[in-house]
């Protein structure tokens, strides 16, 4: 797979504060990445460095094959960071024309991209008359003008109302479905979980994890079970070698697996034991649970 961005040992100090500490990761073409981390964990600083607006203290990064200068590479990238920044006195179309000039692409995609984000009817309105949601959508349209190799979004739903958040997520899903590589920075775990296949987790400027979402914890998932013969089930599970922790909550038994086992397997062996289930669910930990476990372990 083609590498789009590789970051090696990146460090950034703001005075005495180290905002980013020896962070390394690689972005491969075709995946959807999430950068996760609480506020102030160095997400925006890391993105700022690779996007040419923040100077690094040490380390380095390479766009694509590493033979193009950063600003040339950025013409093949679409990025919006924090807040949408446009010229308030210019209309949507005028602003996009300017971006086309900077990126050295033709103006022909403007209408198409405005349509994608649902701003075609407002294309001749001045930017300052837009609501925050519309401004954010215009920013996405602008980032897509060059059909970028990678779309970088930093907190794209920050400060939006539920409807705005929903619209942005739908647009991101649409773009991801087309096979565009996406790098999404967020502190909202469910947001990342819904769209990302890979995550990079930062905490206090340090990388805790990077890789596939489902590879984050060496976990085989867990069962949620319910039955009339509560005690018998509990005893059976505690004796079984494949199960680790058993938790009981509201008549539901949660049993964590130590090794792989399918729901069918469990169901048939319980049935053989004369235990009939009224509820059986096999689940993996949510990203939030995994994230909390991971950050707890690191402390």
């Amino acid at each position: 797979m083609a590498t789009i961005l590789s970051v090696h040992d990146l460090t950034k100090n703001f005075g005495a504060l180290t905002a980013v500490k020896n962070v390394s990761f690689t972005i491969e073409k075709g995946n959807v990445y999430g950068i996760l981390g609480p506020n102030g964990s160095g997400k925006s600083t890391t993105l700022g460095i690779v996007l040419n607006v923040v100077n690094k203290t040490s380390g380095d990064f390479k766009w694509f094959d590493g033979n193009t200068s950063t600003h040339q590479a950025l013409k093949k990238v679409g990025a919006i960071i924090e807040r949408p920044n446009f010229y308030p006195y210019m209309t949507a179309v005028q602003n996009l024309k300017l971006v086309c000039k900077i990126k050295e692409v033709s103006n022909e995609k403007i209408e198409e991209k405005l349509k994608l984000v649902g701003l075609l009817e407002r294309k001749n309105s001045k930017f300052r008359t837009f609501s925050l949601g519309m401004k954010q959508r215009l920013a996405i349209a602008s980032a897509l003008l060059n059909d970028p190799e990678i779309l970088i979004l930093d907190e794209p739903t920050n400060g939006l109302d539920p409807q705005g958040i929903h619209q942005i997520r739908e647009i991101i899903k649409k773009i991801a479905a087309k096979g565009t590589t996406i790098l999404l920075a967020s502190h909202l775990l469910d947001e990342v979980e819904k769209v990302c296949s890979h995550v990079i987790i930062l905490r206090k400027g340090e990388k805790l994890y990077s890789g596939r979402v489902d590879g984050m914890l060496a976990s085989h998932g867990f069962f949620e079970l319910k039955t009339a013969d509560f005690g018998k089930l509990q005893v059976y599970l505690e004796k079984h070698a494949s199960f680790g922790d058993i938790k009981v909550n509201n008549e539901i038994i949660t049993a964590f697996l130590k090794e792989e086992m399918s729901a069918t397997q469990l169901n048939s062996s319980l049935f053989d034991q004369g235990i009939v289930l009224s509820h059986l669910v096999k689940r993996k930990e949510s990203l939030e649970e995994q994230f909390l476990t991971l950050t707890k372990n690191a402390q």
């Binding site: 600003h71 950025l74 919006i80 446009f86 990126k103």
Partner: peptide
């Protein structure tokens, strides 16, 4: 004040340009 300088650089204008 509009922070457009930031966006210009992100869009691929170099500081020299």
């Amino acid at each position: 004040s509009n922070k457009t300088i930031k966006q210009n650089l992100i869009d691929g204008l170099s500081k020299k340009e």
